[in-house]
């Protein structure tokens, strides 16, 4: 569900909470809103599910004004996750997740299967937690249930307001990975609010930086890091942004096809491409252009998988002083190669 903001403003009394928002949220992507406290992130989110009604402007979902959709119906199609989680204390985990499906009158069996499926999705052992009450869960478990609940009726759009903000750093990382995994499988349109730039870079396909109710810069994560528009954005990014980026971006985003494959190196003395991958029925190693010297060939064994981070690939390159690496899927399928000069940001 792509969402379009056209000149959207919200005033509380005489003060703008958000002002003249004009941007589009991409379908099936994670868009992160970041900015200091009070800059209007939560307001922006609530304008979409109409917990707050805008003062002026238009919001389109799938090209349709949100005013044209019944408020209750609209909300049932949108998953909503907040920092305080807001699990219903009087409901078990099962009943909490089943709220919206029950509102939609799903048959009992379908609801049960869905709850089990969702608990698996958020990596909770359903047998262990399904009959527990919120007070019996840890903070991390509660937010997993919160996420599962938001996904229950399979909404196309997910609004997440600092969902992991109150969770300890270790569990926060784990939950971020859970979310990325879910996104890989389900491809939702996700609008994610955070004040943690590391989280923004890790999760965001695109990032919108807010200040005083206005968008300062809205760009793909890589572009934002490469070309911060002003000092404010630079400050938000901090000194570790580039490093963070390398840490979180997966090798798969940089795969190139500049390689050749052979099953034997016995009579090779020149390589046409950057890299020659030796492959019989599994990965046997690779040879770089520069590895052939006076008929002597050096065979290397290193490789990366597509879901390893770029930083890991860089580490291997630095260690062996080479400028490219083969990318091999775990089931021994050649994906391509990754090159140093493509990774490095100027």
């Amino acid at each position: 569900m792509p969402i379009k903001f056209i000149n959207v403003s919200k005033k509380f009394k005489d003060v703008y909470a958000v002002k003249n928002l004009n941007f589009e949220i991409d379908d099936k992507k994670i868009t992160v809103l970041i900015g200091p406290s009070g800059c209007g992130k939560t307001t922006t989110l609530k304008l979409i599910n109409r917990l707050i009604e805008r003062t002026s402007g238009e919001i389109l979902i799938n090209g349709l004004s949100i005013d044209k959709i019944d408020k209750i119906e609209l909300r049932r199609k949108i998953g909503y996750v907040i920092q305080e989680i807001g699990l219903f204390p009087h409901y078990t985990v099962f009943d909490n997740i089943a709220v919206v499906p029950k509102l939609l009158n799903w048959p009992k069996n379908k609801i049960k299967n869905r709850v089990i499926e969702l608990l698996n999705l958020v990596n909770l052992d359903f047998k262990e937690v399904i009959n527990k009450y919120p007070y019996e869960l840890s903070g991390g478990q509660r937010q997993r249930v919160g996420v599962a609940r938001a996904l229950a009726a399979d909404p196309e759009l997910l609004l997440m307001d600092e969902p992991f903000g109150a969770i300890d750093p270790i569990n926060r990382e784990i939950l971020q990975d859970v979310l990325l995994n879910i996104q890989k499988k389900l491809k939702k349109t996700i609008l994610f609010v955070t004040h943690d730039i590391r989280e923004a870079i890790k999760l965001g396909d695109k990032i919108a930086v807010f200040k005083d109710g206005e968008i300062q810069q809205y760009d793909s994560t890589i572009n934002l890091i490469k070309n911060p528009k002003n000092k404010f954005i630079e400050n938000i990014l901090g000194i570790n942004a580039k490093l963070n980026y390398l840490e979180f971006v997966k090798v798969e985003k940089f795969i190139e096809k500049d390689f050749l494959v052979t099953n034997s190196i016995s009579n090779i003395n020149k390589i046409e491409k950057e890299c020659l991958i030796i492959f019989t029925n599994k990965f046997e190693g690779f040879v770089l252009k520069t590895d052939i010297k006076k008929g002597h060939i050096k065979i290397r064994n290193d490789y990366v998988t597509p879901d390893q981070s770029v930083l890991e690939a860089l580490n291997i390159m630095f260690k062996h002083n080479i400028h490219c690496l083969p990318v091999i899927e775990k089931n021994n399928e050649i994906k391509g190669i990754i090159k140093y000069e493509k990774i490095i940001l100027k």
Partner: peptide, 18 residues
């Protein structure tokens, strides 16, 4: 009752009666 619980209920698309 904690206000956030009510807000989440609204956000999930519960009617006033529900």
């Amino acid at each position: 009752i904690d206000k956030t619980i009510i807000e989440v209920a609204e956000g999930m698309g519960m009617s006033k009666k529900e």
